[in-house]
Write a protein that binds this DNA or RNA. Structure first.
Lengths: 339, 339
DNA sequence: TTGAAAGCGCTAACAG
DNA sequence: CTGTTAGCGCTTTCAA
């Protein structure tokens, strides 16, 4: 099958290549007669013509490509391994983009190297970045002058759009829920607490709730390692070794809540009978564990939809920085008991 | 920041654009003097030049882009939602591709529409397809004359490369493991059994093992719905409603094994005390559930690595169809008991 | 309402 | 060892 170009179509339809370009791109201000248009379309169909995006990008400086940057947990290894969260998000972004005629160029950050090279090389029309990255890394992207949306991060930037949730509120909701069930000794289980990270905010929310209740934030109730099933299991061992003074745990990700429950179970500690657990995310994992996990629900798919919308708005001329904070709710299941 | 082109570099280095192109692309057969080369490289660095891939693709017919097609479970919704399997695979593919200087163009199939349009439009240099698709859909891709690798599917094609596992063997291994633990009433839990699909093969392996053991394949022991946590939970209800004659279940995906265990648990049936369960995949879920799931292990990351290798080999001239069957093993955990 | 023509930035003969 | 040159396939002014 030989490549068919706009020229072939033009010949077949008896028009110029310019005309073909006009009808294909159907700009609202274009003035092509219906007959000509029909003739061109017919030729397109018969020749099975598909425009070459490299050529059109070269000329028009538009690629219809959106760069998506997803964190890589271990360099050279899986970037999203234990967290179905990313699968959901990715899928929603891809779908929303495709509906707008855009495709997704997927990358994990190349070991400290800047994304700017890829972005400029490929000429992406917009960038979606998931998670927290070093500030310099992000700042470089300004020079590209294309829309950037940051998902789930708290860097403040005057230009980049953001979509996320109110993690501090979420942390507070989780903790207050536990409080409302009579718990007073509430542990906090999370990955590293980093500046600008969501975990930091959730931790603040945890502290807010405790303080409002007149309760102290005890260091011995803090378990911060990595966002992984394994670390949560380990935390379970620590908890038990220390005598398990806490009656409830706020785990900042479902994957950790599930790990904790598993670890506790192996040590003969029952959830929620001996200890209560609340998670965060409400992804597939929450329903999967036993007991099913009471958790903070967030709408992952909506994050993707919104991110694409922000990019599209920017591309079509909107200049304001946009921000979206998606709502949160408590989903009661079986892992918390009233005491 | 104004765009800097190869021309700017050429001027700055006092050479022609051709020379710049030569040193940038550093072909082995090229003969540029070290001095010239150094001068060019210096200019590249100083001007912060990054080649425009649209322009080079246009000329060279090479995009360094690999199209990745991932199944979409529900049109318009998540494509990989309940299955961390895809996250792992995706990540491995992206990483391997990047090491070879390729990027990943991610797509979910557009509702029955062909992928060929995207492939031709973007000029991808190779395609990786995960999962089973209609034959006509796949056949169209032949006309592109670019390497295609199929992951986890059994369509036989004289050209496309394949990477997968021996699902029939896997089914047999799982069933024989159960048999070796004294089980005789073994149920089969899966998604729809489709031609060319992996589930079909695993089912054959199940039957193989039963037959070798002189046992019948009982219809009432077959539970086939969808590959989801929810269906597995439902199957648990059916099992119990029917009196739970089986003593063990082979679930063809961890996600189903986990769902089954959860569903059974809710009904007061204990795993492995009352009934044993073996899964398939050995992803993160297997370690997450309680009891931890005995399952068939497969190396997901290796699938991605191999797929990229096949594409690279093809691109660099290899003409043979390549096939890789990755090894399987039984991972014993806690969900099967000897009776 | 349409066409001619000038490139976009790069590659690859080919010539020197 | 390096430069000249002719496009790749498309968009878009400008003129007709």
């Amino acid at each position: 099958m030989k490549r068919v170009s706009i020229k072939d179509v033009a010949e077949a339809a008896g028009v110029s290549t310019a005309t073909v370009s006009y009808v294909i791109n159907a700009r609202p201000d274009q003035t092509i007669s219906p007959e000509t248009s029909a003739r061109v379309l017919k030729a397109v169909r018969e020749l099975n013509y598909i425009p070459n995006s490299a050529a059109s990008s070269l000329k028009s400086k538009k690629t219809n490509l959106i760069g998506l940057v997803i964190p890589q947990t271990e360099p050279g290894k899986e970037f999203m391994f234990s967290n179905p969260f990313y699968g959901d998000l990715l899928s929603s972004i891809e779908y929303s983009a495709r509906r707008e005629g855009y495709h997704i160029l997927l990358s994990a950050p190349d070991n400290g190297q800047s994304y700017i090279t890829i972005a400029r090389n490929r000429g992406v029309d917009g960038i979606i970045i998931v998670g927290a990255y070093p500030n310099e890394w992000l700042d470089e992207l300004h020079s590209l002058s294309i829309p950037v949306v940051l998902i789930d991060t708290y860097v403040k930037d005057p230009v980049y759009h953001t979509v996320g949730i109110d993690d501090r509120l979420g942390g507070r909701m989780a903790t207050e829920y536990l409080l409302s069930r009579g718990h007073r000794d509430i542990a906090f289980l999370s990955g590293q607490i980093e500046e600008h990270g969501v975990v930091h905010k959730r931790f603040q929310g945890y502290k807010d709730a405790l303080e409002s209740a007149g309760l102290p934030v005890r260091d011995e109730y803090l378990y911060t390692g990595s966002i992984s099933f394994e670390y949560a299991e380990q935390a379970a061992r620590e908890m038990v070794a220390k005598g398990c003074r806490e009656t409830a745990v706020f785990a900042t990700a479902d994957v950790m809540g599930v790990g904790l429950i598993g670890g506790l179970h192996n040590l003969g500690v029952r959830v929620p009978d001996d200890i209560s657990v609340i998670g965060f995310d409400d992804g597939i994992l929450a329903k999967m564990c036993n007991p099913r996990l009471t958790t903070i629900h967030q709408d992952i798919a909506e994050k993707g939809v919104t991110a694409i919308r922000f990019i599209m708005d920017s591309i079509s001329g909107a200049t304001d920085k946009q921000e979206k904070i998606l709502p949160l709710s408590v989903v009661e299941r079986q892992s918390v008991r009233r005491i």
